[in-house]
Amino acid sequence: MSAILEQRERPAGTTRPFEGPSIGRLVKVELRKMTDTRAGFWLLIATALVAAGTVTLILFAGDTDEKTLGGFFSPTVELTSVLLPVLGILAVTSEWSQRTALTTFTLVPRRERVIAAKVLAGVALSAVAVVVCLEAAVVGNVLAPLVGDADGSWSLGLERLGGLALYMTIGLMGGLAFGLALMSAALAIVLYFLLPTVFAVLAETISSFRGIADWLDLSTTLEPLADASMTSEGWAQLGTAVAVWVVLPFVIGLVRLRRTELA
């Protein structure tokens, strides 16, 4: 109580040196912002439901040799990573649609620091999502022998675990980058999901396009990560696709944000 009174009586004119918020503190704030709204909360619930649903589906409809830890894990990550980018998109665009940018960037005027915090928070959230998927896969693999014939293997290489974590993270970062570059949730969500489809259709119909798609289609190039079949050429292809679909929009967005007038 006395501490509160003292604070209140402190002359308003006195200034003390204050350090800026650490990046860790900003990451904590951004994580909280990603999850404390209805949209964020339900997206996380939906992600967990998708994970549970995928495991259930494999449990009852999968082939015997698919019912391994890895067999449950990979498709779970692939499917949940469809939703997670939306969280990345909203993490950036809600600053504009809800006009919280005004507060965010007056409390932290170095705008790139806020974006760095959002990126790290996104990485953390991807890791959490991967853990949730892994837990769902473990439950699936435990239950599998009880439901029917199952391989039941528990082997899960580090390569696959790391690959799937990267798979999830790249997806979320792609969403974040699209959100940053377009600064509009609707536009970012539509384009993020539409462009790869357009790309895939083009690759299907135009034969000369197929070679390009091997290098530029994000979902094709991500595939080896999910089934732990990455080659050095695969890494080069993935790198190229990530540069085009994640790094490029991110850089465009960052430059735009640094220059833009906030209102």
């Binding site: 040196p17 800026g20 007056t106």
Partner: peptide, 19 residues
């Protein structure tokens, strides 16, 4: 370094997350 510690701002009361 930490502007909120020195300057209190109210630029637009409606610029808050409605949720």
């Amino acid at each position: 370094p930490n502007p909120g510690r020195h300057v209190g701002l109210l630029l637009d009361a409606s610029a808050q997350h409605k949720g």
